[in-house]
Design a protein around this nucleic acid. Structure first.
Lengths: 194, 194
DNA sequence: GCATTCAATTGACACTGTGTCAAGTAATCA
DNA sequence: TGATTACTTGACACAGTGTCAATTGAATGC
């Protein structure tokens, strides 16, 4: 079988991930990745049609390894809306730093590339549906602050746990990740609950 | 005098601004800007050392024209902390859409360029000091929610009125600008005030 | 009125990074 | 043995930035 091809593919994906981690998501050239993977620059194109395809494939690869969905078992175990909210912020908040480099690369690329934008929207819609479930539960429990309808509350929640906000508060304001999670929980309670 | 040179410089700055507006901050090539300005591509370098210098100069140019500081007279007229908070969100919220294209270009470039990052930090530190003044006033009036100390409150305020959040809520969630301002005011009250 | 100076033009070129192509090699399969 | 597969190498096209030298044309000074 083409298991050798698959092995090389994996080597490339791992090298891409490593390079992104080392450069915080910037300036990762095909040539550098190839060097790290131990193959020629041109051979990269035997596995991925373009740089952008490689990036998108890397996101999927990392996502599989990091298993966000498994982590969200904690979220699924939550009984009340408030519990759901807390565990969503906790699980997601602990997830961000692990995927930050790749996410950053995607965030920068999506502005100039339609395929990346679409792939990113796919990732984000997953998160958004968890926000939706959470808010709907809170609403059913009559705990939703009357300032907001369900849609608005979802949008606020989704925005306020965004990677950009995490970035600003942790990397620029030097909050620890724990502080980010705790404070975000606290302030989402203030905003969203009665 | 070199008033002809200044005229051309202005033409370039205006062309840059126009191009950025039309492309929402992306994909503005030196050649395109030169064409719009009605000069040769190479002549651009008689006025600006590099693309990045041109971008930074354009930010300053637009900032002068838009006169954020004059608008903040409204902010300075505020008596109470809550009034300050409301007018900060209002003035800034109305300012963002006018400078969004350039801000976007800066946000994308600053990740790869130190000079841009520094210039951007300069812009942001202005906003941050207004946040600081606001929170300090609220604190002195004993209105600051006990969940936060002054520094944290400033960081939360500064983050939650960020361009990224404006972008996500208006451009992605289709909030009107008025809705963004009103909702942001409401939710900052919930978070920050006793 | 002539010479100088300044702003801009033109064409050429170096450099970086992406993506493509053709020819060749070395291991594997059958 | 001969074909296929995965990869290598060197060359090249293309876009975009930035540089340089030679040139033009208009305004300015004396």
């Amino acid at each position: 079988m083409s298991s050798k091809k698959n092995q090389t593919r994996k080597k490339i994906l791992q090298a891409t991930w490593k390079m992104l981690e080392e450069s915080n998501g910037q300036n990762t050239k095909m040539a550098d990745i190839a060097k790290t993977a131990g193959i020629s620059r041109q051979a990269m194109y035997l596995h991925f049609d373009s740089r952008i395809e490689l990036m998108i494939a890397t996101v999927k690869y990392v996502d599989e390894i990091k298993e966000l969905n498994k982590r969200l078992e904690l979220f699924n175990a939550a009984k009340t809306g408030v519990e759901m909210l807390n565990s969503l912020v906790e699980v997601w908040g602990n997830y961000i730093p692990e995927i930050y480099s790749i996410a950053k690369a995607m965030l920068l690329t999506k502005e100039n590339d339609e395929a990346t934008a679409t792939a990113w929207m796919g990732c984000m819609s997953g998160l958004r549906s968890y926000c939706q479930q959470t808010i709907e539960t809170i609403y059913k429990e009559k705990q939703l602050n009357h300032n907001w309808n369900i849609e608005e509350a979802v949008e606020i929640l989704w925005t306020y746990i965004s990677i950009h906000n995490w970035e600003q508060l942790t990397l620029e304001c030097n909050w620890s990740n724990q502080k980010f999670i705790k404070n975000t929980q606290t302030l989402l309670h203030s905003i969203l609950l009665t």
